[in-house]
């Protein structure tokens, strides 16, 4: 079946089987930044934005995304223009093995779009669905807060995430 959606700001058509979840469809489309960690929606590695809201793409049928806007980590920034959230994760040394990082970056984008001045508690809630065995969350929490500061300073949270 064909799934038509807006993918990272551009119209796209994904050819999928009815049983296929969005993670697989995206990865097959070359968007490997969306990771597979549990396939039950419990680890956060596969998070993407669906119409601006964070969702677990491993438990969302690709077909469910038909007609919606999906943003993956690749949609936020690239080497030539990293998103301030991505820069904040790097500068806070919040990236260790990096497998959880795209999901955390997506979660941060969703948070900051709603709440540009999060508290530490907000940052913790934002990352609660993102398991990480490397960092102990201390530096990712700091990265979320740092990202908020940078986005406020540059007011780019709105423009950075095309969705």
């Amino acid at each position: 079946m064909k799934v038509r959606l807006t993918l990272n700001g551009e119209p796209a058509t994904l050819t999928c089987a009815p049983w296929e979840f969005l993670t697989e469809a995206l990865r097959r489309h070359g968007l490997i930044g969306t990771k597979r960690g549990c396939e039950t929606g419990d680890c956060g590695a596969c998070s993407v934005l669906l119409d601006g809201e964070e969702v677990a793409s491993c438990i969302l049928l690709a077909a469910q995304a038909d007609g919606h806007a999906v943003t993956t980590v690749e949609g936020l920034g690239g080497f030539e223009r990293p998103h301030p959230i991505q820069e904040a994760f790097v500068d806070a040394t919040a990236v260790q093995c990096g497998y959880c990082t795209p999901g955390m970056v997506i979660a941060t984008q969703a948070l900051l779009a709603q709440n540009p001045a999060p508290t530490e508690r907000d940052a913790r809630e934002c990352l609660a669905g993102h398991l990480c065995r490397c960092t102990g969350y201390v530096k990712p929490i700091a990265a979320v807060l740092q990202a908020a500061e940078r986005c406020r300073a540059g007011d780019v949270a709105k423009t950075g995430g095309r969705s």
């Binding site: 968007l31 490997i32 930044g33 969306t34 993956t72 980590v73 690749e74 920034g77 690239g78 080497f79 990293p82 991505q86 820069e87 994760f89 790097v90 040394t93 990236v95 990096g98 990082t101 795209p102 970056v105």
Partner: peptide, 10 residues
């Protein structure tokens, strides 16, 4: 390696 990982390019 951090930037490429934050970009999802790793």
């Amino acid at each position: 390696d951090a930037l490429k990982l934050a970009l999802g390019k790793g």
